[in-house]
Simulated scan of single mutants.
Amino acid sequence: MRRDVFQAIADPIRRDIIELLAIETLSVNKVVEKFEISRPAISKHLKILNECGIIDFNKVGRERLCLIQPKKLIPAFLWIKQYNKLWEDRIDSFENYLNKVQTEKNNKDE
């Protein structure tokens, strides 16, 4: 099955794993310790992240280290970025509406 970055970030556990590995390189065992789900479940998430190219494994002795490949996240970043202006405009509009309502309420209370 061909996987892409959007499949990787679709799951909250995988997003949490990406966030952890963005901070530091961890062994598979250390990743498992960070979650309250089973080792096989974490292994499945790591496998999907690897298939998407977001992480690579590096065997050091008996441990497998999980290495983040941040460049593989660029397509998702670019896709999300195109909606940034849209959401900023909507949030600003909502903030202006709330300020207007608050001002009208304050004027009625006087």
Rank of each mutant, 00 (worst) to 15 (best):
R3F: 04
D4T: 01
V5F: 08
F6I: 05
F6K: 13
Q7M: 10
Q7K: 07
A8I: 02
I9L: 10
A10Q: 04
A10N: 04
D11W: 00
D11Y: 00
P12C: 03
R14G: 09
R15M: 09
R15A: 05
D16E: 12
D16V: 00
D16I: 04
I17K: 05
I18C: 07
E19H: 08
E19C: 05
E19L: 11
L20N: 14
L20I: 11
L21R: 04
A22L: 09
A22K: 10
A22E: 09
I23T: 11
E24G: 02
E24M: 07
E24V: 10
T25S: 12
T25C: 06
L26A: 01
V28S: 03
K30D: 08
K30F: 03
K30V: 01
V31F: 01
V31N: 00
V32I: 13
V32Y: 02
K34I: 00
K34N: 03
K34E: 11
F35V: 00
F35T: 00
F35K: 00
F35Q: 03
E36R: 09
I37Q: 09
S38G: 15
S38D: 12
S38K: 09
R39H: 06
R39C: 14
P40C: 08
P40Q: 05
P40N: 06
P40D: 03
P40K: 06
A41C: 13
A41W: 11
I42Q: 14
S43C: 06
S43P: 01
S43K: 04
S43W: 04
K44V: 11
L46E: 04
L46C: 06
L46F: 03
L46V: 13
L49K: 01
L49N: 01
N50R: 05
N50E: 12
N50M: 05
N50F: 00
C52S: 05
I54S: 03
I55Y: 04
I55N: 07
I55W: 03
D56E: 15
D56F: 07
K59T: 01
K59N: 06
V60R: 15
V60F: 13
V60Y: 13
V60P: 05
V60W: 09
E63G: 11
E63K: 15
R64K: 15
R64Q: 14
L65C: 10
L65G: 10
L67M: 11
I68D: 01
I68S: 08
I68M: 11
Q69R: 15
K71H: 11
K72S: 10
K72L: 12
L73P: 04
L73E: 00
I74Q: 09
P75A: 05
P75G: 08
P75C: 10
P75V: 12
P75T: 12
A76S: 04
A76G: 01
A76Q: 01
W79A: 07
Q82K: 14
Y83F: 15
N84M: 09
K85F: 13
W87T: 11
E88R: 12
E88Q: 14
D89T: 07
D89M: 06
D89F: 03
R90S: 13
R90C: 08
R90G: 13
I91T: 10
